[in-house]
Design a protein around this nucleic acid. Structure first.
Lengths: 114, 114
DNA sequence: TGAATACTTGCACACTTGTTCAACTGAAAG
DNA sequence: CTTTCAGTTGAACAAGTGTGCAAGTATTCA
């Protein structure tokens, strides 16, 4: 990986830009957040759960996806603490666990419609 | 794809949730936006360009990536009208073209730090 | 004109991702 | 206990993604 070290055009600008970037860990975390919302199925799950607490099968119905596909995606969302679940008998109800995400999505929606 | 049609538990909730979701086209567009920011290289490019207009080589230096990798990603960002470029002699300067994205990222950064 | 520089592009390839299928778990009902 | 139902899980696989490499373009400078 040929890292550009020789042909820097403006070292001062490179330096000042580098130092004003957010800390690498935050950038990583932020890109992970965007990545998880960057799939239409997961985004629709989050949107649906921002309206109602739902069991897996009803989530599948709302998103028009298979139970299995939804369950796989729910696991990812659980691992990132975006949703949490609540077992009642045979059924598992999911809800949003991170309401920051809800407002973030709402804001982003108005952004794309500008 | 076994779509869940039979075992819907609460049809009213499914119906009301479905109708209160944003229109499918917007969801698709929003997930595309998140997807493009969901890669650390691209996110760092956008962050860097929100600080300074930069040529490709300086961008490579800031992000610690090869010229080629940066150039490939810049093409994607150009195609989505997130950045635009400006040729001056041999050099190509890139800048942010969509400043909604800038504020969206800034807001999201504060979200993850909550 | 010829060489050098800054960047772009197409191809290749390893890696990742999303979904399906089938097997499994655990709770409830018969 | 056995069956049924709701959901989970792992393996498999096709499709997509990010980067490197090498060749190409366009501009500058000698």
């Amino acid at each position: 990986m040929e890292i550009c070290e020789i042909t820097i055009v403006d070292p001062d600008k490179v330096q000042s830009t580098s130092t004003s970037l957010p800390d690498a860990r935050d950038v990583e975390e932020l890109s992970n957040l965007f990545k998880i919302l960057g799939d239409p199925t997961r985004l629709r799950i989050v949107l649906a759960l921002s309206v109602n607490e739902l069991c897996v099968c009803d989530l599948a119905a709302v998103t028009q996806m298979s139970i299995s596909a939804i369950s796989h995606q729910l696991r990812l969302l659980r691992n990132m603490n975006i949703v949490s679940n609540n077992k009642q008998g045979k059924m598992v109800y999911y809800k949003l666990d991170d309401h920051h995400i809800e407002s973030l999505i709402k804001e982003s929606l108005t952004h794309i419609k500008e």
